[in-house]
Simulated scan of single mutants.
Amino acid sequence: MGTRLRHLIELLDDGVATVEEELGLAGFRPRFAPFVRTLATLGPSSIRDLAAAVEVTHSAASQTVAQMDRQGLVSLSPGTDARQRIVDLTPRTRELLPTLERAWQAAEAAGRELDAELPHPLSEVVVAATEALRRKPHRDRIRDHL
């Protein structure tokens, strides 16, 4: 199941990345989108707050922010605590927001189109699977079968 899900994510992300490149957004990775959207909405945020908003681990958020920093998409500044870093969008990224928004709206419409072609909407299945795994983690389900 994991292999198939990773392949599905690759197919989805590759499609988004290709279109974003065609729109002049070369180097912008699909995994950056929820971070940019969150920062555009909330403004400067700590990595911990970003991780919570995007629903990823602190480590995953930190790695993604580091990649975005290398691409010049975000700036980092010290927080109130020596360990804390505050993330903000760069002026360049703010200029890209209208184009990014167009790409995101098109991707969402394409997702609705894909959902309509499936026996069960993928977006609903993903939400239901996530909720089921929150109720009972996969490791517990595996252990039940050992």
Rank of each mutant, 00 (worst) to 15 (best):
I9D: 01
S45G: 11
R139N: 05
T3K: 00
T57G: 07
S59P: 00
P119H: 05
S75V: 15
L122F: 03
T93L: 12
H120M: 15
P137D: 04
R85M: 13
P121I: 06
L12G: 05
D140M: 14
A61S: 03
R37G: 13
L133H: 07
L39P: 01
D69C: 10
D88G: 15
M1W: 13
D69T: 05
P98C: 09
D115A: 12
T90W: 14
E21R: 12
H58E: 12
A40G: 10
A40S: 12
A109W: 11
S75W: 13
R94T: 15
V54Q: 06
F32S: 03
L122C: 02
V16R: 07
L42T: 02
M1G: 13
F32D: 04
Q105D: 13
P137T: 03
W104F: 12
I142Y: 03
T64A: 15
A66M: 10
P78I: 13
E10V: 11
S62V: 14
A110L: 08
E101K: 14
R6C: 11
L42K: 12
L118R: 00
G24H: 04
V126E: 05
F28N: 01
A61R: 00
R4N: 11
V126M: 12
A40V: 00
A103Y: 05
L146M: 14
L50T: 01
T18M: 10
L5S: 09
R102G: 09
G111I: 04
T41F: 10
R102N: 08
R102W: 04
L100H: 02
R92P: 00
V56N: 07
A128K: 01
E95F: 11
T38Q: 08
H7V: 13
V56H: 08
I9H: 00
A128F: 01
S62Q: 10
R135Q: 11
Q63I: 05
D81K: 03
L42E: 00
H120N: 07
F28W: 07
G72K: 02
R94S: 11
L76G: 01
V16C: 06
K136I: 06
V54H: 03
R29K: 08
T90G: 14
E20M: 15
V125Q: 04
R70L: 13
A128G: 03
A53W: 07
P78M: 13
V54F: 07
L146S: 11
P44Y: 02
T80H: 07
V54S: 07
S62F: 14
V36T: 05
T3I: 15
A66W: 03
R31G: 05
G2Y: 12
A61T: 01
K136S: 13
R29E: 14
L133V: 01
D14Y: 09
P30Q: 08
T41S: 13
V87Y: 13
A17M: 03
A52P: 00
A52Y: 05
M1H: 14
F35D: 05
G24K: 09
R112V: 06
F35E: 04
V125T: 05
